[in-house]
Design a binder for these strands. Structure first.
Lengths: 365, 365
DNA sequence: TTTCTTGCCGAAACCGGTTTCGTAACTGAT
DNA sequence: ATCAGTTACGAAACCGGTTTCGGCAAGAAA
């Protein structure tokens, strides 16, 4: 009595099952299972015998058959946000490659879902958890107050943040030291002779913005420069907003000769602003940014930026998550990496003083 | 006797199981299962009673518990290639969103893996199949001769191509009518007064290249123009190669006043070539392309291109695949959609004749 | 009435694993 | 030699579903 069946399950369903292995060894499948899972009540001799024949027979357990008993299916969950402005897109491919490869290496798989953010994203995660489609999650683009972390914590589902949290609970994370990059960028600009340096930050809903701003400030202090609060703005995640912010800074009566951006996408807006006003990027106005999106190399002059290795990040996140699911304590699962300076021609010694620059700007408007 | 355990499986493992539903109804779980799966030996009354209480109790079957018996887990497999030149990246996010959303709507999930292509990609697919991590595959970027299709066919695993195959076997596909876009592009250029139109095709390993070239030729014929084979080149998938191809075409003694590209990424190279030679895109040289990547809007003048709705494509592919897995015959699962003209300033009436253009080019080199 | 269908459901096997429990055989101490 | 304690495995239950099989009851045909 067959119901509407769909595709015939290929008769080549000749997978090697645990029972096959057991029969070949003259053991029961229970014993084989315990041997493979390192139960203490199996003799070393048997354990090795089992391991060898399982290997030679090409036995690999079906993750979802295990999952029905254990609740774990060796799957990493990744929920992406669809409509975020810009910056995510260029890295997505590399990031996925990193996660996917690391997962494969551990015989894990990657389940991805996309949702529009907010509550819908939480609902999506809930569904994946409830249906046991993911044993844990990678949480990209950590927010200053991240409801995803809260949810997963309360559900006791393992997760690893890409980015840090303001109040560090017991969670695992991986992050690139954006603050360090900002610090170095300021040092570089100061070394070129800039003393009035503006800072265009990203959206304050993201935690990285706080870190990068702090890095900017530390850098200024180390360079012996004073931060003019009028030259510190935020909320620039897109080219358009970046443009507007630069115009805003340049309209100051003592405009900055250099502007540091927290985000490449916004920094591209500086080119538009410069073109509109008639300034040469890299000479009249120096720009340094962060992310290392491909567009950096396409604009003229090339945008000096701190490049993030997204593929590596994805790989590290996956490994940390797997270790977390396997039982390691989250507080031991924290890693950072450095962004790498990727020099272009967008920064250099100031050709104009702030006064001259102010005149140029005034003349253009 | 517990083995090294890992994270405690959350005690909130209070999912509603099929037994719960059965108990609540005074039926056996077998009956409930058959009722929910529309077996013919269940009375309509019972079927509806079961459906209602299952719904009200919030019962949703565990996909991987079903899979152990049925072999299907309601998962779409998507294997992406890591190192392809360019064009994939900009659309990945939209494409994933489309696939993911369509999958979610049907209570399916999306398993993605990335690999470097060729045999490694086939091995990755094999692994996913063997481990039952995917019930079927979406095969993006169809090649002229696609080993993936061959493999999946021989394994009798359902799949849907994004793109068509040269020799249409019994497979399902979704595709955008690139040839139609090329045809319209030629008509547009001809209408603007161009008579010498070059064509820079993509790599001939991709099947779409054959289609688009055919579209170009049909368009030329319909416009009453003769194709100069010297002005038809291929293999341009990147900005750099695109640039070189344009230079090559312009070096012709009767250079084209308009160039049609099969791929945006390559068309961007035309801007570099034009800048090097000192030509105005849109006036001295008209360019129309295809894909609709975001960069089209960032270059000056904006690149006229035929935009592909990747999100929609992903969604359609997912739905077709699901229907395929459910048993519909692949030959009934074929869809196409249109690319949409996205006008920029990169094309227009020719300012120069081909002779004048040749002189300009000669002067510049 | 009797017999044959048919409709409808319960019982139980099954999928491929994991985990608990019980026990035979081997220690080692008395 | 006896007895308690280990060691190492078999047996069987279990996870959450699906599918087969058998049989009861009601209706149809004889």
């Amino acid at each position: 009595m067959k119901a509407a069946p769909g595709i015939e399950v290929s008769p080549s369903a000749d997978r090697v099952t645990i029972s096959d292995v057991a029969d070949a060894l003259g053991l029961t499948k229970g014993t084989v299972s315990r041997a493979l899972n390192n139960y203490p009540d199996i003799s070393d001799a048997t354990r090795q015998r089992v391991a060898r024949t399982a290997e030679s027979m090409g036995y690999r357990p079906l993750a979802h058959a295990q999952a029905i008993r254990t609740g774990r299916s060796r799957a990493i969950g990744l929920v992406l946000q669809t409509d975020v402005a810009g910056a995510q897109r260029p890295f997505l491919s590399d990031f996925l490659a990193g996660v996917s490869n690391a997962a494969s290496d551990a015989s894990w798989t990657l389940t991805v879902a996309m949702s529009s953010g907010g509550n819908e994203m939480l609902a999506t995660m809930r569904r994946l958890i409830e249906e046991r489609k993911a044993d844990g999650f990678i949480v990209p683009r950590t927010l200053a107050e991240d409801a995803r972390a809260t949810l997963l914590n309360s559900l006791k589902v393992p997760f690893v943040l890409y980015g840090r949290l303001r109040e560090i609970g017991d969670c695992a994370w991986f992050d690139i030291l954006g603050e360090e990059a900002m610090r170095k960028a300021v040092a570089r600009l100061a070394g070129q002779g800039h003393s009035r340096i503006g800072f265009v930050n990203g959206g304050m809903e993201y935690n990285f913005s706080y870190l990068r701003e702090e890095g900017f400030r530390v850098g200024m202090q180390e360079a012996g420069l004073k931060v003019d609060e009028n030259l510190v703005v935020n909320g620039a995640m897109t080219r358009e907003v970046g443009r507007d912010k630069v115009v805003e800074l340049l309209a100051h009566d003592k405009p900055p000769t250099a502007v540091l951006f927290a985000v490449d996408m916004a920094a591209l807006g500086a080119y538009d602003a410069a073109e509109a006003i008639g300034l040469q990027i890299g000479q009249d106005l120096s720009v340094i940014s962060y992310d290392g999106i491909p567009e950096c190399a396409w604009v003229r002059p090339k945008l000096t930026s701190f490049r993030v290795d997204s593929k590596m990040a994805g790989g590290r996140l996956a490994e940390l998550l797997i270790r977390h699911v396997r039982g390691e304590h989250p507080s031991t699962l924290r890693e950072t990496a450095h962004a790498m300076l990727w020099p272009g021609g967008s920064d250099g010694p100031p050709r104009l003083t702030t006064e001259e620059l102010a005149n140029r700007v005034a003349g253009a408007i």
